[in-house]
Structure formats: structure tokens, C-alpha cells
Design a protein around this nucleic acid. Sequence first.
RNA 1: GGUGCUAUCGUCUAGCGGUUAGGACAAAAGAUUCUCAAUCUUUAAACCGGGGUUCGAUUCCCCGUAGCACUACCA
Length: 526
Amino acid sequence: MNRKVRVRFAPSPTGALHIGGVRTALYNYLFARQHGGDMILRIEDTDSTRFVPGAEEYIIESLRWLGIEIDEGIGAWSKNDKESSDLLAQKGDKGPYRQSERREIYHRYVRQLLDSGHAYIAFDTPAELEAKRNEIKNFQYDASTRLLMRNSLTLPKEEVDRMIADGTQYVVRFKVEPDEDVHVNDLIRGEVVINSSILDDKVLYKSADDLPTYHLANIVDDHLMEVSHVIRGEEWLPSAPLHVLLYRAFGWADTMPEFAHLPLLLKPEGNGKLSKRDGDRLGFPVFPLEFHDEKTGTVSSGYRESGYYPEAVINFLALLGWHQTGDKELYSMDELIHDFSLDRVSKAGAKFDYEKGKWFNHQYLMLRDNELLASEFLTVLDKHGIDLKSSGVTHEQLTHIVGLMKERVNFVSELWEQCNFFFVAPEQYDEKSLKKRWKEESPKQMKELYDLLSATDDWSPEALDSLVMPWIESKGYGVGLVMNAFRICLVGAARGPHIWEITSVLGKAETLRRVEVAIERINTPC
RNA sequence: GGUGCUAUCGUCUAGCGGUUAGGACAAAAGAUUCUCAAUCUUUAAACCGGGGUUCGAUUCCCCGUAGCACUACCA
């Protein structure tokens, strides 16, 4: 079948888009781009009771942040766009792309199924169904039980018509013919066969809100929107045979899309698939962007706000369930588009390894230009109340500092705790470092060092090094002891970059001042 | 309970009948350094079990086991 590749990402606006959904979107996108096809975003809001305001905007904003473009549907955008302002703009001639706006279309197709005898009307109330479930073990609404129920198969036509006219609530159910092996060809798993007898007569439409259910809407829309490949989570695999049956019932079997069911993202610890609630419980984000739930008033952390770069999230996610032959780990979006293939997607679920996500961010942070990092760090400094000018650090120095320190952090925000001493003098001195590095003779040595340093005017790292090192040797002091005590004076702890890098940024006056303060403070315990 | 999917180091995975079973994250050790990191080197770490098929199975088939998913008028 040689038709144009068209895929869709079809989330429900029931809250924040979670990271598993992001990966599904990503795989769809990669597949579409690789084949020169279209990526459609469709909103599946057929459950009116679960709609969450703002969820659509959230989904689209997330995809934009990550660089997953949408060619058609809600929120269409491309990287070449100049910041299109309307987040929810629709694009494409197969719309509307929001299922709640497609009622008339679904009416038509429900009618078709009813007329062709593939579906029937059922009046059983939720309470009645519940009663049946209690009465009959493993009750299922199917060929073996449908004649026991209140539906258009068992009730006289006049009564059915009358009830509908009276406004009695009803649903339309799909009439599954029993005992037929339904074959589903899955691009990742191969052929899956399920006997139709285990399928129930799924509800396709509910009169209560005049909306179809997922199953009906999904098939009708994929057909009308000429979707060529359905790439979705594995949780849909059990209902894939039902979908095949629906395509057949509509007479669309020959243009049925191909299916690919993706392995699930699993919890890092214990069992089960990664859920929305796992995030802050386990200490990592499960959402791309921070999410404010207005109903519960809770805030869930997001990758963006946690300091992740989108390219790190993309790279990390791409490799959770897909891997090319070989050892390559770092992939740009373009490389992913080039290398991705559905037949190399793993079949088993992948535990979500958050630690590796950090490592990916570390990689991308190190690749980042120092100037850019410096400007990012500036906003972190600002949050800590640091103003570059008053701290006496120049922009050149900041860029230099960032360059020195970037390889030791995973996030820009971590830069603060690694190098705050460049901007503020230590308030207190680290207990452990003192114990190990500040000996009885340290105050005296520091005093001598103070005198030595005050006498010089050449403050370059090289000059200081060739001044101090021979001095230590001539005095017979331990290099480690002197340098670490010195470090404690300047930093407040035994950490940080090379000591002359620190003195060079601090300058002579500040360096001497810190030594002076330290000698006094450390000797007078309070 | 029923149905389906899945199964290589702790984790993500490479392997597509014959390999010392490879890489990465995490872990440990060492090197380096004035410190902490980073870096480099090294180490430890896996084919779920049982049957087949085969000269030969991690690889193919079956069974078992385990994990997961689904089993709504939710998607």
C-alpha cells in the first residue's frame, strides 16, 4: 500500500500530558518526518466529565518546548514559524480536530452501523449493569448475554422508538459476532490473534452527552483524516481487534491504517506503569512542564522548570524503548529522524531510569556555549539576589566561571551551590573540611600567607603560583595543608576549582579580606 | 478469574544459531589534583526455568514461571 504517511497524536485533555504520552508523540513525529508525512494533533475530548480546562494549551506548549512540530490539527506549528501566538489554532481541511466538535459526523456513522445491523441500541442503566455483574460471574455484554438485556434486539421496535422519543437515555453498542479469530498485524509485535468471543459489545455512543466513545470516534476520525499509521501505547493492544472489526463493519478494511503498539514506560521501582502520581512521590518530574492543577490546587514539577534542556529530554525519551544497532547514545532530533525505525522499537516495557535522564542533561549542558550558559546562570544568580555589578564579577569572568564549572553539574541551577563563593564571601565554614584541613598551625600559616600576598602586585595565577609554592617549600610546610586552609578561607569548604582561578576572580583585596576574616572567625568559636 | 503482550547485568539496551555475551547509566577501586568534581583506567554485574529442533542454542518452537496491560456509558 503506497499511500502518504499520516500519523496522529491524539491525547485526551484530562490533565497534564505525561512523559509516556510525550514519547508516543515523539515516535509519531519521528516516523512522520522520516517518511515525509504529516503529523496530526487531534484532541480526544469525548469524555465530557473529565475535561480539564487548560489541558489543551498545556499539551501544545509542551510539544513546542520539546520541538515536536504539528503539521495539521489543533496547535499546528513549525520551528520555522515566527512565534505564532495562537496556541490552539487549527490547520488542515479534515477538521474540526477536536472530537467534541464532530458530533454530526459521528451521528452519521452511528446511524450507518445501526442500519447495517452492526450495532444496536441498549437501555440498560449503569445500576442494572452493575446488578448483572454481581449476579453473573464474569458477566460480559456480548453475544451470550445480549438477549438477556434491555435493548433493541430484545424489545419491540415500537417500544424502542417510544423510549427514545421520551428521552430515555441509551447507548449504542457494537454487535460483535462471536467465535471469529481476528488478526491484527502489529508493526512491532507481528501478528496478534484474538478470538472475538472474548470481546464485549462495546459502547460506541452515549445519548447522555451525545458523544461517541473513544473506539468509535477513533476509527471514524482516523479514516476520515486518512491516517496511515496508528502509533500508540500498548494499553490499546487488547482493543485493537475491536478496531479491526469496526473498520470492517464500516467497509473500510482496505484502507485500514497499520498499527504499532509501543511498550509502556514503567515505574522505576516496584511494579506497574508510570503514572501521573509517581512523579513527585519518587522525586522526579513525570510532566514536561510544571503543571498547576486548579481543581486540587496541587503543583506538579516539570522537566522544563527542573532545568532540563529539551534536547536532553528528547534524547532520553527516544532511547527508552528504541535503540539502533551499536553504541551510539547521543542523538539530535535530526539524527533521530534519520535513524528511527519502528521495527527496532523494543517489545518489553521500559523502567523509567531517572538517573540516566540527568546524565543526558549533563551531556547537553557541557556541549552548550559558555556565553549562553552565563546568561542562563544570570537568572539563577538573580533568584539568589546576586547582582553581577555589586558582587564585583565581570561578565567575562562569569563566562569564564561557567566554563570552569559546567562539567561538574547536571543543571544550570546546580552551578549556584558549586560556585556561589565567587559572588558572596563564606558565612560559615564547613565542619568536615575544617576538621580535616584546618590544623593548629593554620592560623599562623594563613597570617604569613596574608603578608606574603599583600606584598605582591602581580595577581596573575602564574605569578601567584610561582610566589606561593616556593614559599611553602622554603618554610617546610605541607602543600596540601596550606592550600586547603587557604581554600577554606576563600570558599568556606574544601571544594571548588583550582585555587588560582578563585583568587583571580576575587581579586587581591577580596582575597586578603577573606583570609583575614577567616583567621579571626575560625579561631573564635561562638 | 479471563484474554493478550513481554522476558539479556540493579536500570536502558546491543546481539538476529557458533561471541572471552558488547555499550551506557548507577556502583566500586585506582590514576590525577591543593580540595571537590570532572576526566581517564580498571573491576564487579545478565542470557527466568524445563523440554524440544539442531552438530551446536541467549538466539527458533512448546510448556511452565514471572512481570505488565486490558477486561467502564475513561481514554
